[in-house]
Write a protein that binds this DNA or RNA. Structure first.
Lengths: 355, 355
DNA sequence: ATGAAAGCGCTAACAT
DNA sequence: ATGTTAGCGCTTTCAT
């Protein structure tokens, strides 16, 4: 029923092959008399011809589609907007390069690849894959190009990461610069590739200031508010002279849990204990006090990955290495750096900071 | 290079056709001697055969893929989690029915359908399409089955909506039950199909209580916090005897803007002015005070749409009508209903309400 | 410059 | 029960 290229060719009085090259703009080549080309284009337009991408894919072996693999099915509705931002960046970049996007997210939960996994796509973006992600092997076999977003660089495919080490350094350094000497480190987990470098950055900052790290001040186990709350409680139970005067949390949720624990203990943020988070999510503007946080451009993580992937698909990017995106620090009220301007800040309408 | 069905057939010593039916489990039919079937399956397994979905699609005319069209490219990273939740519901249901998901979101921003739009998919889910959405016509021509999520039922394709009228009624009724007589209505916009029914519900609730609506108490123009703030400011500028003692906002963002304006005016929520929002987003637990809000199951909007769409694709659901999902009211602290238990509430850790 | 023909990998009559 | 044949709609040599 739908109009095919044959109909177009027939209407234009040419062969199918001619119609094909006309419609695919092989104009540069020697082929095609301008007259016939126009006839074909006109016919196509008149008939409302829309090429069938499936047929095209079968013939060319290219799908013009990228696959996005998020780590778990709830990635969209997660409290942590990380995945949605990556997705956003991926999508924007894919569109820009005229690629469609296929979602393969639920794979992780279902433990078996969806029908025709990876065959719909010319390449795959894996978000937060663990080092032993079976998909990597799967793709290598089938020669499906892959790029990983936030992953251990040893994973075997090109990776795009944020500069976690620098982020860890930045957050800690900021607190050191504010005069803190006992700084707690909250959160992280072995399985998550970001934990290690962030901690390394923390340690390096301490070392730079000639401070010996205190294991009692470092709690790692989780990433959410509950964990931040529990971990902070422990730090608060330390004898006063050992107690941290500041904490650096590996993400904003965790930091907020910590702030809550601090308030519950009758202490103030940042006066009694300063807090710095990580991720600089929108959330930071809504916490009490607003949360100073290390910022990475999550959207760019996604878009950069797409650009690398597309280059790979076109055989232009052979290097297998890691691309590291820069981080920065967004200063708000939880660290005490703005203590002086706090009042002015308070009077400013929170709406100003709402997108 | 990849192994095809021909390789399998050859290895099993059968024809391609036989291999095909064996692998597609036409076991029920008369076809297939169990022996050959097993031989084929074994061969396939041994060779690591993976059927090519593109070729299959071309042959069958089915893609086993659903397309999701969100209304704007920033839909994922919106402050309002509506779209992400719809997407989540859509995805879950699609997976359950063994459909893949293709994202067509950016279409709205780019003003031209992406390559092969709708041809990759057996059907489309349109989220928040305006009544004149050109895609609808586009799909009708190409006979692509569509279902719309949150749309005017007159749009011409099956729709799945939340019961906005009931939601408007519920929120207003709650305030009336708490003794309020002057209740403001905040937010909404002509173009958005939900505004009208919510307002209708509001009016009906007033009518039920024998209260004449006061146009001065109804402000409609936008959906965000800025608007809520500005609109509330206007209501606050009314002479005291005309001023509302409660307001009902058409979404949570708007409600929060209003709460802010109230606080800025030196008044308290809910003691001086009670506030009820709409959507019951996670956000409601983080506002001050926590926000009473009308709840709809956004995920279900998505999953219901998928189920309708799949039925359509299979030609089982001819009805073109509207499906309406129920709403409820989540009572928190902004409405005053829990005033008595407020203290207990305060002492409870906010973490409890964090997912 | 254009057309004829082959084939991408698979399914689905139809024939045996 | 299985093999043969003909496409699905398009691209791409290879002739002409």
């Amino acid at each position: 029923m739908p109009v095919t290229i044959r109909d177009v060719a027939q209407k234009a009085g040419t062969s199918v092959a001619t119609a094909s090259s006309a419609l695919n703009g092989r104009r540069g080549s020697i082929r095609m008399a301008e007259a016939t080309r126009q006839r074909i284009v006109a016919a196509a337009k008149e008939l409302g011809y829309v090429p069938n991408p499936i047929a095209k894919s079968l013939a060319t072996g290219k799908t013009r589609t990228l696959g996005l693999v998020l780590p778990y099915a709830d990635a969209f509705i997660d409290q942590n907007p990380f995945c949605t931002h990556v997705m956003h960046g991926v999508f924007q970049a894919a569109i820009a390069d005229k690629y469609n996007l296929m979602l393969y997210t639920a794979w992780a939960d279902h433990h078996e690849p969806p029908i025709g996994f990876g065959q719909h796509a010319d390449g795959l973006i894996l978000v937060l894959p663990p080092l032993d992600e079976p998909l990597i092997a799967h793709c290598r076999e089938r020669e499906v190009p892959c790029v990983a977003v936030v992953a251990d660089p040893r994973i075997g495919v090109p990776t795009v990461n944020s500069d976690d080490r620098e982020g860890g350094y930045l957050g800690t350094k900021h607190l050191l610069d504010l005069g803190h000497r006992r700084i707690g480190l909250l959160g992280g987990a072995r399985e998550v590739s970001t934990s290690e470098p962030r901690r390394a950055g923390y340690l390096r900052a301490l070392a730079d200031s000639g401070i010996a790290p205190d294991p009692r001040l470092m709690a790692s186990a989780g990433f959410d508010a509950r964990f931040g709350h529990a971990a902070m409680l422990e730090l608060l139970s330390l004898p006063l002279r050992l107690r941290p005067t500041a904490v650096f949390a590996v993400n904003d949720l965790c930091a907020n849990g910590a702030m809550l624990a601090i308030r519950e203990a009758g202490l103030r943020v940042p006066e009694d204990i300063a807090v710095v988070g990580y991720d600089d999510t929108e959330f930071c503007d809504t916490t009490r006090p607003t949360l100073t946080s290390v910022r990475m451009s999550v959207d760019e993580l996604g878009s950069t990955a797409v650009r690398r992937l597309v280059r790979r698909i076109n055989g232009q990017d052979e290097q297998d290495g890691e691309v590291v995106l820069p981080v920065s620090l967004t200063i708000r009220n939880s660290c005490g750096a703005r203590a002086a301007s706090l009042d002015r800040e308070r009077r400013r309408s929170p709406l100003e900071s709402t997108r």
